[in-house]
Every structure is written in structure tokens, then in C-alpha cells.
Design a protein around this nucleic acid. Structure first.
Lengths: 140, 140
DNA sequence: CACGTTCTTGACGTTGACGTCAACGTAAAG
DNA sequence: CTTTACGTTGACGTCAACGTCAAGAACGTG
């Protein structure tokens, strides 16, 4: 159901690496094809074109996974784009590498703020549950 | 600057508990008064009215804090409302308490999924930084 | 080769979360 | 007593993130 397309056709470019159609990746990640196309419009993924048809490689699936995780974490798509582009950014020159390292630091700050918020929310929830359970006990 | 209004006027209802104006709470939480009013429109906060003017109590500030944390965690406002309402929900009857406990469990599931996503993102980022630093070393 | 399935590109609609006026009330200050 | 600062209610605008048609093109199958 989520197995790659049988791309053994004459026009196959690299038979070693599997490819997927838009319907397959959408199905697999639980989104609509419209969503996948929207991410492409925003430049978050750029599948190969065989003629006019989109052909998705492992790289695209990886990026789609990162996008959806970013969404679950509440990041806007524009920000997600800069984040995953970071992973593919050129790091040839020292200046580029240092820029990337600086970006990484910003990202970490943000993620750790979120973690603090998350921990706080979870511990408040746990404390609230404790109170509820003690209430329940007193009622029995 | 964020100190409560001096509500020692003749019309003071309870001089023991401090109150704030909309400008004060907005300032304090770093949002606009429009945002605060929007949250009221959606029923996330319901400040007292003295005449036509809104008067904010500690309870409202607490809720506003929860709202903004929920936003930082990427929850939609409607969902945030059900969450913070949960904390104020009546728990008099056993059935109500059990409902609340069930809701708590759903919440926890959600938050823990987010935590997993967050941990994954952070460890990938750390691994990526390690690779970058090793690249940098080889260039020196 | 007709046919249904899957793909494509627009283009407009919708929902959430506010921003941004306009037009007006009110209360302390000069 | 007018000014000025802050408050109020609409109502419309905007931006992100898609949903939802419409109208074709391409492709395997009977």
C-alpha cells in the first residue's frame, strides 16, 4: 500500500533507488495531495519531474517527515523551510559553516524554550490529576 | 510599569485583591489589547465589567498565561479553551470527576507525543551540530 | 481505441488568529 | 470646560494553510 512504484519502465533513470507518486506519499504520511503540492509551492520540497508528473525520492519523503513533525511542534511552514534547508545548506567554506552553526544555536534555544513550556504543562497536568484522584478517593 | 491599578476608589469591591486594566495586562504579557479582546470573544477569559470597562483579576492573568503557553506549544485557541476550562470544570459528582480524568489522559497523550517529537528534533540537531563541528575541524 | 484512473495546473473558498481603522464614551489634568 | 489619554464596540482586512472545485492531459486495461 505504501510500497514504491514499480519504476522499471524504459525511461527509468536510476533503477537502484525507489520512487513514489504523489498519491503514494500523501497516503503514507496521512495528508492530501493538495497539502503536498502546497508544500512544494512554498519550496519545502521539490520532487523530480518526469515529463509533467512529479516523482518523489527518498529525499522528498525525509523532508516531508521533517515538515510534518515541525507542524506537530507548531512551527509555521516558512520557519520549517529555513530549518530543513539548513540541513541541506552548503558548508564548503568556513564562513558558511559558521553561519550554519549559529543558526543551529538559535534553533536549539527555541526548541529548549518549548521543552520548558512542555515540561511545565505536563507537570501541572500531573499535579491536577493527583488532586482529582484524591477528590475521587474522598467521595468513595 | 506592570503594577496593578490603584483601585482604592470609592467604588472598590474588594480592596484586598488587586486588579488590572486591559492595557496593563497586554503590556505585561507582551500582546496587544486586540489580542486580549479576541481571547475574550472566544471565551478564553471573561474579565469583570465595571460599567462598560473591563477589569482584570489574578484569575484572568493566570488564564492568559496558560493561553500564551498553549500558543507557544502550537495549540489552536479552541483547543486551549477546552484545556483551561478543564481546570475550572465542576468536579462535584463522581461522573464529572471521571470525565475530567479521562480528559486529562487525552491531554497527556498529546503532550507526550509532542515531547517525543521535540526530543527527536533536538537530538537530530545535536547530531548535525557534531558533524558540522567535525567538518570545521578538518578545515582548520 | 475507448475508458476509467491518476495525474496536472489554475483559481477561488474557508478557517484561525488576529490587525486596523472608524466612531464614540469617560475620566483625570490643565 | 476643553483637551488628552485610555476605554468601548463594530466591521472589514490580512495572512497562513490548506480545501474545493473545474478542466484538461497521460496512462494502463479490456
Amino acid at each position: 500500500m505504501t510500497s514504491p512504484s514499480t519504476t522499471a519502465a524504459p525511461g527509468a533513470v536510476d533503477p537502484a533507488s525507489p520512487t513514489w507518486t504523489i498519491a503514494e506519499v500523501a497516503e503514507e504520511f496521512g495528508v492530501t495531495h493538495r497539502t503536498v503540492r502546497h508544500y512544494e509551492d512554498l519550496g519545502l520540497i521539490s520532487p523530480e519531474r518526469r515529463g509533467t508528473t512529479r516523482v518523489y525520492h527518498r529525499r522528498d519523503r525525509t523532508r516531508l517527515g521533517l515538515i510534518l513533525r515541525g507542524k506537530r511542534l507548531g512551527f509555521p511552514l516558512e520557519e520549517i523551510r529555513t530549518i530543513i534547508d539548513l540541513y541541506d545548506a552548503p558548508r564548503g567554506r568556513r564562513s558558511q559553516l559558521e553561519y550554519v552553526l549559529a543558526q543551529i544555536d538559535e534553533r536549539r534555544e527555541d526548541l529548549e524554550q518549548r521543552r520548558r513550556d512542555l515540561e511545565a504543562a505536563l507537570s501541572e497536568l500531573t499535579e491536577f490529576e493527583r488532586r482529582c484522584r484524591s477528590d475521587l478517593e474522598r467521595m468513595a
